[in-house]
Each structure stands twice: as C-alpha cells, then as structure tokens.
C-alpha cells in the first residue's frame, strides 16, 4: 500500500477582483467581483514508503497549495488524500504526529527562546519519550552539527543555522514523512550541501519518505529519485530525471574540429547539422550510437584536432517540461 495517496485533488480559491487605481479600489468596496482560481486541478499520485520525491514546478503552479493540503492545513475543494491510510483533514492531529514539515521561508522555532528550548517544547508537544528524544537529538547533531548553536537564541541564528535547527526540529519526533518546502532557499553552497546530506542520511538511516519542493537544480539532481512536475495546477510529468532527459532531450551534440578543411561524411546514425570550414556539428540519438563509436567512425575519414560533446542542460529540460513541451528544441 502506498504511504501517500492523492486522488483527483482540486483546490479552488475565491479571489476578489480589484479594479485599477483609486477608482477601481473604491468601486470594489461597493461591489465585489469574485473570481474563482483553480490552484490545483485534478491531480493524482501515490508515493511509496522511503521515496525521495521532488515536487517541482514554476512559481504559482500549486506546489505549496498541495503541500499544505497534504499536511492538513488547507482543505481541498474536492478529491481525496490519504497519508498512511488517514485523511489529514479529518484526522489532523494523528496525521501531523507522523509528519515533519519545514518551510524554507518561515520557521517553526520560537524566536524568543534558545534553540534547545524550542526542541524541549516540541518534545512535549509530540510527546516524545526521553530515550527517543536523546537518540534523535544525537543523530541530528551528528548530521547537522547543531551543538554549536543549540544554546543561542533563535533570533540570533544565521539563516543557515536556523534552517539546520528547523530540520532537526522537524525530525525530533521520528516522522515517517517529511515535507520540505524550498529548504535550500537563500542558503550558500555549504548550507545547501548540509541540507542535501541531511535528506540523504535520514532517508538512508530512518527510511523517511521525503517530499521536496524546490527550484534548485542541484537539489533535484542530487536528491530526487523521482520527480513530479506540476504546471498550472496539473501534473505534467511523473518519473525519474533520467527518464525525463531521455524523453525530452534524447539527443547529444558533437562538435568536431579538423586540422584542415575536408568534407565530412554523413553518418548513418548521426545527423550532420552544419559544417563551416574546419568545424562541423553532428546531432545523434544517444540510445542509438555512443559518442565513442561516432568519433571512431568519423576519424576514419579525416584527422580530428578536437571535439566537444554537448548535452541538453537540466535547466532547459525542466523548463521544457514546465511548458509541457514534448521535445526540447535546439539541441
């Protein structure tokens, strides 16, 4: 049975349309024009125990709305969510007991307290027993090195430290599911690395299921064994990154440079796009022929000085997926 099951989920918001300028603002005081926005439009997916899933999409695609519905904060307009067999809306308290949530843009730590005191509060709120609390704290310390600032008031922590504190706080009660909403936002390279290491480690050590929304390509490449891509409220992709690359950008480009001008042949498995004097460009399907084979074949005809392989950039592939393009142009 999947750990998380989402079936035909819809969320609509009613927004009040405001006219332009002062006139519009005055008018909307008297007469409200309502508009229904569908933030999440009939999405379905299921996630198995122990997966790390990247839930990605452009800003405003409905990612955070979905995460909020999954964690029981928002009620869906229609559709069904089950987390370990329970509905987060009907059984909020029982579901959140098994859930860790970290928002990159807001902290659950108490501003006025020291980090350790915030942990103590969470220990009481989640009714964590002493042994488990000490074990988890030790594990979090080993991964995140929080002992360095555990006695510092939260308001004095740097963003990177605060984020590490927030991650540790979310894992103290050993939840089975962890939602990370843009966890690396605004962090430096070391900070990002620490968070990625954390996600990998808890997934390995505790088999925690992680759902991660992010705009960071490094997060996607390093962490996510599976990507669910949402655009304008609907799921446009669901699969691994390598499958996505194979489908959207199946080609590689080979740039060849010759010692002297010579007409390069047409290869049966690669398309010659152009040749300008000593420089030529081939495009080939990486599943049909390897780069090594192609270079070997071509070098029978001429003397190669240099070559360079070009692959579609992950960024372009993700962007193509956001715009629901079947194939990446250019490459």
């Amino acid at each position: 049975m999947p750990l998380i099951k989402v079936n035909d989920l819809v969320k609509e918001y009613t927004v009040i349309k405001k006219g332009k300028g002062l006139k519009g603002a005055l008018k909307s005081l008297l007469h409200k024009e309502k508009e229904i926005l569908r933030a999440v439009n009939h999405i379905s997916f299921s996630i198995q125990h122990g997966e790390i899933v990247g839930y990605i999409g452009p800003n405003g695609a409905g990612k955070s709305t979905t995460v909020k519905m999954l964690s029981g904060i928002l009620s869906p307009t229609s559709g069904e969510i089950l987390i370990d067999g329970l509905s987060p809306q009907k059984d909020r308290k029982r579901v959140v007991q098994n859930l860790g949530v970290v928002f990159g843009q807001r902290s659950q730590l108490n501003w006025d307290l020291r980090l350790g005191e915030s942990f103590e509060l969470l220990k009481r709120i989640y009714r964590i027993d002493d042994r488990q609390y000490q074990e988890n704290l030790a594990m979090m310390d080993a991964i995140l090195e929080i002992h360095k600032f555990i006695h510092t008031p939260v308001r004095q922590l740097s963003l990177g430290q605060r984020m590490r504190g927030d991650l540790a706080a979310a894992m103290l009660h050993s939840p089975q599911v962890l939602f990370l909403d843009e966890p690396t936002i605004g962090l430096d390279v070391d900070g990002k690395q620490a968070i990625r290491k954390f996600v990998k480690e808890i997934n390995r050590l505790k088999q925690t299921t992680v759902i991660l929304t992010t705009h960071d390509l490094g997060d996607i490449q390093e962490l996510c064994s599976r990507l669910i891509i949402i655009s304008e409220g609907t799921i446009v992709e669901d699969g691994s990154l390598s499958d996505l690359i194979d489908r959207i950008a199946p080609y590689r480009i080979l740039h060849v440079e010759l010692y002297e001008e010579a007409e390069l042949p047409i290869h049966p498995l690669a398309e010659k796009i152009r040749q300008d004097g000593t420089a030529a460009v081939y495009r080939f399907d990486k599943k049909k022929v390897t780069a090594a084979q192609l270079i070997e074949d071509l070098s029978c005809f001429c003397k190669m000085k240099d070559f360079r392989l070009e692959e579609a950039r992950i960024e372009d592939i993700i962007r193509a997926a956001y715009h629901k393009k079947e194939k990446l142009e250019g490459v």
């Binding site: 909020k68 964690s71 029981g72 904060i73 909020r92 308290k93 029982r94 959140v96 007991q97 859930l99 949530v101 928002f103 807001r106 659950q108 709120i125 989640y126």
Partner: peptide, 14 residues
C-alpha cells in the same frame, strides 16, 4: 496575516 498559523496547525495539539 503572516501565514504562521500553518505552523500552529502542524502540531498534534488543539
């Protein structure tokens, strides 16, 4: 107003 009510709702308490 700030949206932090979300964090209160994520706790297994009333």
């Amino acid at each position: 107003q700030k949206g932090s009510v979300a964090l209160d709702l994520l706790k297994p308490v009333n």
